[in-house]
Design a protein around this nucleic acid. Structure first.
Lengths: 137, 137
DNA sequence: TCTTGACTTGTACTGAGTCCATCGTAGGAT
DNA sequence: ATCCTACGATGGACTCAGTACAAGTCAAGA
């Protein structure tokens, strides 16, 4: 993750302890935390960090493309640090668990021209839903 | 849409004027209203209808499978009455416009077994993003 | 037409996120 | 090493979407 901090510094980011802690919390793959969860974990290391700062930092990481927002349940958004490895999500309808998946094929190519209505289509987001082994009946 | 009302009556629904109005508002294809928009349009016909009733009715329509919820922007959920014709969505990143689309191919089949992690996968939701003709640069 | 339980209402409440005036500090300038 | 200052952090108030619930209303079967 220190390479993330390097990249950020390279983009003119002022490296504060708060930003460092938020970046550290988001380290690792297959992490899908809500803003409040990020705040809780950050506060474990830096008790005075405020919610507003966590929101600001997450927003900045998103607009820099280092982190992507996923909202799979219509409740709190989740923040996915796996931003440089495009992937989709498999969500358990029972417990809400999220797994990163990498389907074969390119869904962008599956949208024929006559279904594009003149749009310049640049992104696809695929969410698979089902029951995980623990929640299966 | 009267067939919808028939179907609902058949399922033991008590047919109140409020429910009728909500169902009427959701009539038609390519309609993607937020709960508040549904409420506003319903109130135009039935001024005393309450927000709570609109939420209740929408929730019931969703659990009956007559309407699907889509949350494309992390803000208010939208309600899509086109529930019996499976389709995906194309969203303009500029103005938020939503179009229903029908990609070729079956994205469910694109998720290989070794990417399913033991899940019983039953649904896919695909969101295409881009710029609509009006918002294109 | 009566009855009754399903439905509706309004208000209060929660949860997620944003705004903003003020304070603090990272890091370049000296 | 110290100073400056613009960028960033803070926290509390606020908004927006949605939920909970007690009390009142009414659709539809007897």
């Amino acid at each position: 993750m220190s390479d993330l901090l390097e990249r950020l510094r390279g983009r003119g980011w002022r490296l504060t302890s708060q930003r460092r802690v938020v970046a550290e919390v988001l380290d690792g793959d297959h992490v899908h935390l809500t803003a409040d969860e990020v705040h809780a974990r950050a506060a474990a290391r830096l008790p005075e960090i405020s919610r507003a700062t966590v929101y600001n930092t997450l927003g900045e990481l998103v607009s820099l493309g280092e982190v992507t927002e996923v909202s799979t349940d219509g409740r709190a958004k989740r923040y996915d640090p796996n931003g440089h490895h495009p992937h989709h999500h498999l969500v358990c309808s029972g417990c809400g668990t999220i797994r990163d998946v990498r389907p074969s094929g390119n869904p962008l190519a599956d949208l024929p021209d006559d279904e594009r209505f003149g749009f310049t289509v640049s992104e696809v987001e695929v969410t698979y839903r089902g029951l995980c082994p623990n929640c299966a009946p």
